[in-house]
Amino acid sequence: MAIKVEHELHGRRWGRNLGVGLLLGAVVAIVFGLTVVKILALGDAGRFQGYDHVVQPLAVPAGEGGGA
């Protein structure tokens, strides 16, 4: 017979681990969702791409100093 004593302490730990995991997942989802909303609010996502890491003049609208 396998020896396995479940104490309510384990239940609490499991609940806490699950809670922390879900909260971390929720934070990631919120930050991702906010990023999407903020970029879409620019109207043209290409404008954001123009300044992604390094300036890409071809992706920046002509009126803003780009070549496109």
Partner: peptide
């Protein structure tokens, strides 16, 4: 059975 250890609280 009714252990109450600081730091071992549940999510509730």
């Amino acid at each position: 059975p009714s252990l109450s250890v600081p730091g071992e609280a549940g999510m509730g």
